[in-house]
């Protein structure tokens, strides 16, 4: 008996009266870009566009998964909900970006067995091996305590907000629309992280000690956010993407402002690593564990419907 038959004999069939669309998520998937013109604009290389979308999509996907680990573990209910919502926003951005990558260059999507109902963006998320992911090592790192998480989120969302604001003028109308929407969401993420950063710094002796330790943990990886690859340089030349190196000054200004509000200095620590390794598929040890957990259910049922 194959997976498909198993799924058709779901115990819930009777409850649904055979009407699967009663489920909140449906049992068939919708194309998140349905009705969007995904034609590749003139002067844009489809393969480069796909590679670029994988980078931004994988950053959002892997970071969303990592942040979602706070669910039911955050210091209080409000922050549990906040971090889950931030993860959900990023997951939504990831879905659109991975769907855009698949539409721009179908060859990036892993081959699925015949009859598999898995849509391209899910195939990209759940059926790629580690070396095919293009996210920065920055988003793979373990959450650490709440202070480490807040520092990492502040730097990430400051960078991503600056990036999305520029990407909103991409010559690719799909990327431009995804970015314009993302700006509104990430604005809330940055404010959340910034407020907690200042609150922890000005709170108790213990909260300040933890924040300072968190800053020292995350700071060496900050430089990775603005390291560019050939793909991003090309994306910038063809005006569909942003070279992260040009964002440095703008992001630094935001980070320095928050540090000043928290009465803290930039840590005197050298950047870790030398290149954008994650962008070429070389990941840290934590990535394997993360993917194993994220992909295990989907991989066990390549023909499964949810």
């Amino acid at each position: 008996m194959d997976d498909l038959d198993l799924d058709h004999e779901s115990v819930y069939d009777g409850l649904l009266g055979g009407d699967s669309s009663q489920w909140a998520f449906g049992t068939d998937f919708e194309d998140p870009l349905a009705g969007v013109d995904t034609m590749i604009p003139a002067g844009v290389d489809g393969a480069a566009l796909a590679a670029y979308c994988l980078m931004l999509g994988d950053d959002a996907l892997i970071y969303a998964h990592r942040l979602s680990e706070w669910t039911s573990n955050a210091p209080d209910l409000e922050d549990d909900i906040a971090l889950a919502n931030i993860a959900l926003d990023l997951l939504g951005q990831a879905r659109l970006l991975l769907a855009r990558a698949a539409a721009a260059d179908a060859s990036v999507v892993p081959q699925m067995p015949e009859g598999s109902p898995v849509p391209p963006e899910d195939a990209l998320a759940f059926f790629r091996d580690e070396h095919a992911f293009r996210n920065m090592g920055y988003v793979e790192a373990l959450n650490g305590d709440f202070a480490v998480t807040i520092v990492r989120l502040l730097l990430f969302s400051s960078h991503r907000l600056a990036l999305l604001q520029r990407l909103a003028t991409s010559v690719d109308p799909v990327l431009s629309a995804i970015a314009a929407k993302g700006v509104k969401e990430v604005t809330y993420h940055r404010d959340y992280a910034g407020r907690w950063f200042v609150t922890l710094a000005g709170g108790t002796e213990e909260s300040r000690r933890r924040l300072v330790a968190g800053l020292r943990t995350v700071w060496p990886t900050y430089a990775e956010l603005s390291r560019s690859t050939q793909v991003e340089t090309l994306a910038s030349e063809q005006r569909f993407g942003v070279d992260p190196a040009v964002l440095t000054e703008e992001v630094d200004a935001v980070v320095d402002h928050v540090l000043a509000m928290a009465a803290l200095e930039r840590p005197d620590l050298p950047p870790s690593g030398t290149g954008p390794m994650g962008r070429i598929g070389r990941h840290t040890e934590e990535m394997g564990h993360l993917l194993a957990e994220m992909q295990v259910v989907a991989r066990a049922h390549p023909l499964g419907k949810w």
């Binding site: 909140a24 998520f25 939504g92 659109l96």
Partner: peptide
């Protein structure tokens, strides 16, 4: 019918679509 998502990750979109089809 054309609808627009409120948030990128809004899980209600699929339900809205199904309810419209219904």
């Amino acid at each position: 019918v054309t609808i627009t998502p409120t948030y990128s990750g809004c899980p209600a979109m699929a339900t809205m679509r199904d309810d419209l089809v219904h």
